[in-house]
Design a protein around this nucleic acid. Structure first.
Lengths: 364, 364
DNA sequence: GAAAAGTGGGTCAAAAAAAGACCCACGTGA
DNA sequence: TCACGTGGGTCTTTTTTTGACCCACTTTTC
């Protein structure tokens, strides 16, 4: 019966409001990233009727947040300002700050930042996570340090959303791992180069696959150039990485059925840098990985910015992140709520369902 | 195009919300002061249909804020907590803090406190004002001081809402004026006695009418007991008073048609302690008044708690209050918005009308 | 330049929600 | 005990919302 801080009382009086607010915010945000966009395109994206979308857009239009033209709907200057500055108010009102505090206590990390929205419903939440992480990254930069960045969609989003403003002088950006997977844009190399360009920093690259046999690994580490880069990688003060679900990552690393079975039997749920964790945060398997040594990471790395989202990835996040004061976690609301649910944190189911409605289709 | 602080962005996304929120708050507040109360009684008070009221109460019930029993509707513990603690959130969300700051600048007083709601629509706003002023009064109390309290409905509300908790020792409560008007409960004497009892303080009374001729006044001031009390009144460190509209107060003080005409001609709009002010805050007329001397009030009185509300009283408030750093003004939203409107403070008309709806009938 | 596709505004019928109005049994206070 | 007010139930009417489509216009692609 105790009233939490922040928005709880208002939400008690007007329980309909969170859903309305989230709905409108999602539309605004989608328009921000897609403008100019037609009403039918929006309706399809959100899987609602044309008429419904029109009604919502009409409200936003009356408020001066959007303009509606033959080329499509786009944000006004006020609308842009609103989208870019609403997050604190929105988080406060939706009680996301409370969520963050709970996760802080549960995961024992340095910082938790929850981005409004569910990545599985709104793919642009990834961009918002990238934006938030980019801001944190910017705060962590120190002159003459090494920044190691990993691969994957989350890290790519951070690189995308990082503004082109020089960082402190003497920074070197390196990939935290070798090549993995098939998409060029998600490679640690590509992301490292992109981040370096945006920061006006130097960078070094690693032209090898991440997954190699032990023998091949030892052999390659005799190569001067390779050894040099790997050494550099391991002097990184700041680390940027995502988190993979164990089965996905194992497959991506070429694991066969037997290996997958073994991982499953051992309870592996999350992976980072070739290290698999079970749901209690214990290491259950290692795959040889080029790049970053896992041992002594806590002592070497000051800040590890971890970016991961989506409800399905809650288990993996909770497994990998924990008891690491170096970790600065950026995740979405979907994952945040699920992590708390998994840990029986008494996150009120009603509170969750209140934020869902006709604008909550399965991600398509 | 500039976004103000506080609730503005949320209100932009959900312009329907203020009305919903205010509506629910008013219902909750009415139930708080009237419980147990039937649905039909509430519907009549707010001048809405039975079904409409039922719908609203159903929402509050689902939220655990009210309980609905055969004897009527009342608040749950949560509901009481909500009503008593929501004011800061509500004010923030509705932008009332902004309103307060504007009035502070405009009126140049020590403090302005705006109570949500319009006294002309909801008579219980008077109680809320009383409650707010009582809190301020409590803060101003100092051991061994004299507190002078005036008459009228506002001051009576303060006395009513003042909790029964002893104040600092040695306090003496006195009436700031003599008898005026016909209602016993609104006399300064009655209110002084009530306040004293609640504070566990001493009190002195004044058994004479406030409006006397000069001759009678001089004569009575020769009387030792009367002189004593009047002297005491003029040592008051803290003063509590309301504000009257000039014409009302003149009539209440027995002014005839000629005098009313003269006041009107001189542009009198507000009155306090027999002193009439025009809209520029200048004194335009004095009527002999027992009690408090107006001269030197600023030097003698540390805090004057001024309680007044209602849109129609905006002019009077603005006339009487101004350039007095001793003044601590408590008023309702109705008067606050009207004062700003009168002074062309660009208070957006839309912002005002948004808070009105079917739950905004004429006061009955 | 022509064709295709996407755009917004208009509109009507059907569906859904809201609201008026009243009934009835029960509980409470005088 | 009686009168009045209470809440829950319910049906009809009214209002609002929504689906679905039309049409003219604009933009993009070939």
């Amino acid at each position: 019966m105790a009233l939490n801080l922040e928005g709880d009382i208002l939400r008690l009086l007007a329980p309909e409001f969170p859903e309305i607010l989230v709905r409108r915010y999602r539309i605004l945000r989608k328009i921000y990233y897609s403008a100019p966009v037609g009403r039918r395109t929006l309706a399809a994206y959100f899987q609602v009727g044309e008429r419904v979308l029109r009604r919502e857009v009409a409200v936003l239009r009356e408020q001066g947040l959007v303009k509606v033209e033959p080329r499509g709907i786009s944000l006004t200057a006020l609308g842009k300002t609103a989208v870019l500055s609403i997050t604190p108010d929105l988080k406060s009102f939706l009680g996301l700050n409370v969520l963050e505090n709970k996760l802080l206590k549960l995961l024992k990390v340095r910082r938790v930042l929850v981005v409004p929205g569910d990545l599985e419903k709104d793919e642009i939440v990834l961009q918002e996570m990238g934006r938030a992480a980019a801001r944190i990254l910017r705060e962590c930069l120190v002159a003459d340090m090494v920044l190691a960045v990993s691969g994957g969609t989350s890290c790519a989003a951070v690189a995308d959303m990082l503004p082109e403003t020089p960082g402190p002088p003497g920074i070197t950006v390196v990939p935290a791992r070798g090549g993995l997977g098939e998409v060029v844009d998600y490679q640690a190399n590509t992301i490292a180069a992109r981040v370096a360009l945006k920061l006006d920093a130097r960078y070094r690259l690693l032209y090898l696959p991440d997954s190699l046999s032990d023998a091949a690994l030892q052999l390659l580490l005799q190569e001067k150039k390779i050894k040099e880069v790997v050494s550099l990688i391991n002097t990184a003060r700041v680390l940027l990485h995502g988190i993979g679900a164990a089965d996905d990552m194992a497959r991506r690393r070429g694991a066969g059925p037997e290996e997958l079975q073994r991982l499953c039997r051992r309870g592996a749920v999350g992976e980072v840098f070739g290290v698999f964790y079970n749901c209690r945060g214990e290491i259950v398997e290692r795959i040889p990985s080029l790049g970053l040594y896992h041992e002594g990471l806590d002592q070497r790395v000051h800040n590890a910015i971890v970016v991961a989202g989506g409800r399905k990835k809650a288990r993996a996040i909770a497994a990998v992140v924990g008891n690491h004061p170096r970790d600065l976690l950026v995740l979405d609301e979907g994952a945040a709520r699920e992590i708390l649910r998994l840990h029986g944190e008494g996150e009120d189911k009603d509170n969750r369902s209140q934020n869902e409605g006709i604008f909550s289709p399965e991600k398509h």
